[in-house]
Computed example of a mutant assay.
Amino acid sequence: MTSAPPPPLPFPYVEMDGHPATEDDLRVPALFGFGHFTALQVRDRRVRGLGLHLERLEGANRELFRLPLDGGRVRELIRGALDRAGMRDASVRVHGFLPPGESRTRVMVTVREPAAVAPGGRSLMSVPYARAVPHIKRPGEFGQTYYGMLAARGGFDEALLTAPGGVVTEGAITNIGFWDGSSVVWPDAPALIGITMALLERGLAAAGEPSVRRAVTLDGLGAYRGAFLCNSQGIAPVWRIDAVEFAGGDAAAAETEGTEGTEEMQGVMARLEAAYGSAPAELL
């Protein structure tokens, strides 16, 4: 008589400090949610920009808790969670918490199905919100979630965060870049430098196409020939911000099929993908 297969693991699968999360473990993020995290895509146990993810975790942990967070420990915890979840390709998040009275960072790893950016262009609704301490990636951002919800209700794909004066900073869960006809332009404003953004900057520079930082404002969007978003899931063109349309996205391409602007942005997106693809995938 054959034994029944083990029940499937719940997704997302959650571990705390190297073991399946218990009810007590889950009280940590529920009651002491002050912390930080990084999100990464794993393919065949490899991660593009793994070193940058580990640097992000270490830097945030020292700033928030005055404690180190060893990269070797983090890699071991990710490997263990993937082993127990039985996955080689996955979406992984690594969180750092320090509950009151404790002296060692609690590390939570979540594992779920791999994800990739959906095809097609994105539409953005600008909102008057800029994150405090934006260089630290942290969970439970009420403002980003709230304005993202409003954007979705308005028929947009994502919110575009702006500082006073209409200064563009970042997407709610992405970085945004622009194309001015000769260079990729990143908004010169306080924002989280995402791992994909950092890899794009490196890859473009290595290809002889260095990107630049420049102040971008809502009233100056018409000067740009295109725009794109990027995060751990990939890179996507932007076809609209509020009422300003760009070439290279779904709706714009439907009206300008085969035009010079659309073809130009298709070329830009191909170069961005090549720059990102040039980053080595590091073994966990």
Rank of each mutant, 00 (worst) to 15 (best):
D70Y: 01
F65T: 04
L82T: 06
P12F: 12
R79W: 08
V28T: 14
P20H: 01
A39C: 06
G80S: 12
L67G: 11
L57A: 13
E76F: 09
A21L: 09
Y13F: 11
L54F: 15
F34Q: 11
L40H: 00
M16V: 11
V14W: 02
D24T: 10
A30H: 01
G35S: 12
F65E: 01
E63A: 12
L82M: 14
G35H: 05
T38M: 11
G71Q: 06
N61A: 14
A60H: 04
R73N: 10
R27T: 00
F37G: 13
R27L: 10
D17C: 13
H53P: 15
L31D: 09
I78V: 15
Y13S: 08
V74F: 12
D70M: 02
G72E: 07
E58V: 07
V47I: 13
G59E: 04
A30M: 09
V28D: 00
E76L: 14
V47S: 04
N61L: 04
P68R: 06
A30N: 08
G80E: 12
P12G: 05
R73C: 06
E15L: 08
R48D: 07
H19S: 10
L57I: 10
V14E: 02
L82C: 08
V74M: 09
L31Y: 05
T22R: 10
L40I: 08
